[in-house]
Design a protein around this nucleic acid. Sequence first.
DNA 1: ATTGGCACTCGAAACAGGTGAGTGCCAACT
DNA 2: AGTTGGCACTCACCTGTTTCGAGTGCCAAT
Lengths: 340, 340
Amino acid sequence: MVEDRKLAVLRAIVEDYVSTQEPVGSKALVERHGLGVSPATVRNDMAALEDEGFITQPHTSAGRIPTDKGYRLFVDRLSQVKPLSAAEKRAIATLLRGAIDLDDVVQRTVRLLAHLTRQVAIVQYPTLSRSTVRHVELVTLASTRLLLVLILSTGRVEQRVVELPEALDDDTVARIRTALNRATLGEKLSDAAERLVEVPEQYEPDERAPVAVIVATLVEAMSDHRSDERVVVGGTANLARFGDGFDASIKPMLEALEEHVVLLKLLGEASSPSRLTVRIGHEVPHQELSTTSVVATGYGPGDEALATLGIVGPTRMDYPGTMATVRAVARYVSKILDEG
Amino acid sequence: MVEDRKLAVLRAIVEDYVSTQEPVGSKALVERHGLGVSPATVRNDMAALEDEGFITQPHTSAGRIPTDKGYRLFVDRLSQVKPLSAAEKRAIATLLRGAIDLDDVVQRTVRLLAHLTRQVAIVQYPTLSRSTVRHVELVTLASTRLLLVLILSTGRVEQRVVELPEALDDDTVARIRTALNRATLGEKLSDAAERLVEVPEQYEPDERAPVAVIVATLVEAMSDHRSDERVVVGGTANLARFGDGFDASIKPMLEALEEHVVLLKLLGEASSPSRLTVRIGHEVPHQELSTTSVVATGYGPGDEALATLGIVGPTRMDYPGTMATVRAVARYVSKILDEG
DNA sequence: ATTGGCACTCGAAACAGGTGAGTGCCAACT
DNA sequence: AGTTGGCACTCACCTGTTTCGAGTGCCAAT
């Protein structure tokens, strides 16, 4: 079937180009891959593929390279997931199992991802929004100064210093603490914030002021999406590997990597760990990065996506391998979070 | 005086080379700078400077560029501190004053430094070792599970979850908390750890086990130098600016920036904010980075250096300006930490 | 539909000559 | 002794030219 062979040719072109980084010609193609046809035939197919916009030639008399559209077709229809080696799986498992706290998990994940894919890795911290309150603690620092500690189900801890309008005795602080915990324990952050509004009303008007201040701070801490947007980047040294014409895009790349807002946009909506998002070239939601691709997926305990992780690299990348790695890492991290 | 003029020539060469990034010749030198002598004279001086190893020529018939030794002399004897503009000072002050917590201070500092110097900035978190204990808090999470929170004078908060061998009632927890605070409040971390050893001994043998576990965790948290070594990097996009032959060193640079251990070595010993450490080329304590220079200084409240901050850039950099900026930023950060 | 043959294209590499910034050295001047 | 003008020389860099060859498109034959 002709259509089949055309797809085979496209696949061959992508694979060759990814590994050699050079435009691939008809002759080299038939030699490297065992297509049982002549170069001339391949040329015809190539001409057709070019008409359809899947490949292009950098200059008139040179081999072909895949277009974004070509890569798209490749990942959608042609590439089968490349299973990881047992050694790799073991490496992932043991490395992640050694983590001692949330920070460490995130850090190890980003390194692992960068190392395995040899690309730039991005990991978003688990978002607050879906997590629940595990404990609220008030600590007296000075007569009019409290430390408020908010502990979440994800293991994240937020703390705030509260300046009180008037002094509170230990007993009152203890009562407020109990009230706060009763109102918020086990609740999702959004719900907890709502329920907190009622708390000050339970107090006499004359002692309501300090309570209001505490509640306001707590609500602020809960809705503080500053930490929501925390992302960690690793493997930037891999940028140097890209070399070639990629030198031009190294600057925008580095700039983007410092803008956490941009990174979050790149990672996109969190999806389940079994679903990979692959954005290729112009599909990437950031103008400056139109020569790069993003492979991302969600992760989180119980298959519920709390956050996103992924990698960024040149469009010319090993999609099957990268996709397999990203998915595997996301699954292991999810499992670790589940247990912790 | 001849020696004086030779130094003037060296200074002129450094300044010109830094701004143009091109080897500088005798003719251009006398034109750009107002040395009242002929090119031939300058050539003689240049030959002498080259003999002494302060400058070199990239190839036989080209201008001269400074050697590491030349830069060294330049910063030691020839450059006078370039005072910052009022606008810059104001920018530093307002930006840092807007910070809301320690993390934010560090983050803003690194951005500021990168932006002002247009180099890669590195900021180390204030070290634990010299800070003192402000408060120790125990929070009951479950019957055999406590959260231990350690608050330090620098504003840093460390937390640990403690698994107890047996349940403790609230009253006992409160007593332990009091004991812990009595033993450690206001103490330096190293002293506090020592004094904690005595705490379990005050308890009856039969309830000593859980106390010992708590104390062990606390001591571990205090001596955890993992967080000591936290550094934050910013302005990596400036690497792209270096361009030229610097392309070769961009990879080792990126690699080094991911190795926090290396960065700490680069920053070196913390010194007082008024003392700058300048390491040039081969003086940098890292082989791969011998085409770069490091400008660093200590910072911390009350002129006591708790940590280090600085920048890394090509040896060919504007030393007077960079040194002034680094020093100014370090001073402002110190002031902020003093007030907070 | 496939294939061998063939003329054609055009980037990359290799080569050649010209240009000029910059040098080193020397003899003359202060 | 220190400074200067003069002068021959070097060599990276630019520019134009040539050659080379991988790769193409097209066509006629199978």
